[in-house]
Write a protein that binds this DNA or RNA. Structure first.
Lengths: 216, 216
DNA sequence: CAATTTTTGAGGGTAATCCCTGATATTAGA
DNA sequence: TCTAATATCAGGGATTACCCTCAAAAATTG
């Protein structure tokens, strides 16, 4: 028997899910929550196996709830439910412990399949959600291009120096590692400060990491 | 008519694709490339609409090719093909301009569907690929948890100082902004260096950004 | 091959960081 | 309530980073 807890503030929707699951002999809805802050307690008290969790929940949103449960109630498996197919929601809640993500227009069969899949230890995502994520992946391209136009290209040697600065090395150490003079390293560092338009090494590290300058 | 160029160094595989596509009245294989460096020229000369691009290509790999084409031949739509379902390959090539990703065990129907879908301006990914990506998303969770246990908590005031360091402010500026003495800021900075176990401000920025210390 | 960019290097100086050893209120947790 | 952590501040010194100007090989690119 799979014990299911539903956390959603839309009563009609909860009723709908419950009427669907009533027909399943091996599933049982053991409770409902209408706000985020009561979820944790309910999960533990009712020994829920599966939590159907609305992402946009009043009080404490789904992502917060997820984060909390991943430390206080690791056993429960979470399927996130959302009205909208928002990329940011999906990535955020998945990296905070949810095992599945489905949309509210999901039909009866898919809901049951999702629950069974997740209960067995696998993950489940609806087609639309998968597609959204894949599209999101491709957008990185555009972003990268836009950003990289704002500051001129950083040369190969400068990248080497930058990498060592990020790695907490002093100018002297960098000079030794690259077999060049201290003054040369200072020169590179100075160019980097200019190119990336920052005031100090802290800024270099920040900009480099924000823009993945060392990736390519 | 859809003009298709195939770039793959496995001759048998190319033959297979070509024999499949020969039966399609509205598709035509206009050329083949057996290494990465010749792809760009061929795409332009043969006016290819679709490029079936092997990720692991000799000479210049698929990702490099993709990156190049996104500036020199924007019109061509790229479907990446790979033997393996490697998350890193998928994300990398997708964020460099590919419109689709399929595996080499793809059947006839799926291949044709992929080509038609991408040609119409949409993107296409095989089920296995989608699943790999989604699983990868969830892994972020584990990484985050592991890291955050290694260093002790950073106090509220220390976070304020840290934020200003990341924002490229000097100790004197931070002191003025927080209405405290320069020595106090130095004290906080020193504590941060100890707690985060780094040698200098560059390290502070790196660790802070890697672990999202300012988020909470 | 010419022009540009990159990489290399120097001198000399100012400003900022980092380290050490202290100390005293304030605050939060057990 | 008592203890531990936090936030505040100081002197002094060593090291490092940052700024300026300048310049000459070396590599890339047209």
């Amino acid at each position: 028997m799979i014990n299911i807890l539903i956390a959603d503030d839309h009563k009609m929707f909860v009723d709908g899910i419950e009427s669907i699951l009533r027909l399943e002999p091996d599933m049982k809805v053991v409770g409902r929550c209408y706000d985020g802050s009561s979820v944790e307690e309910a999960v533990i008290r009712l020994k829920a196996d599966i939590l159907l969790l609305d992402v946009n929940l009043p009080g404490m949103n789904g992502i917060e709830v997820c984060k909390k449960l991943s430390t206080t109630a690791k056993h429960v498996k979470i399927i996130a439910i959302s009205m909208f197919n928002e990329e940011s929601y999906v990535t955020e809640i998945l990296s905070n412990g949810a095992s599945g993500y489905i949309l509210k227009n999901t039909g009866r069969e898919e809901l049951i399949k999702a629950i069974k899949t997740v209960d067995s230890g696998l993950s489940y995502f609806s087609e639309e959600v998968k597609h959204t994520i894949m599209k999101g992946l491709m957008k990185n391209n555009e972003k990268k291009e836009q950003k990289s136009k704002f500051f001129p290209k950083v040369s190969k040697r400068e990248k080497e120096v930058l990498a060592l600065i990020i790695d907490e090395h002093t100018t002297q150490e960098i000079a030794s590692k690259l077999y060049i003079s201290l003054k040369t390293v200072e020169s590179h560092r100075s160019s980097l400060l200019n190119k990336l338009n920052v005031r100090n090494s802290a800024g270099l590290v920040r900009v480099a990491m924000e823009n993945n300058l060392l990736a390519e």
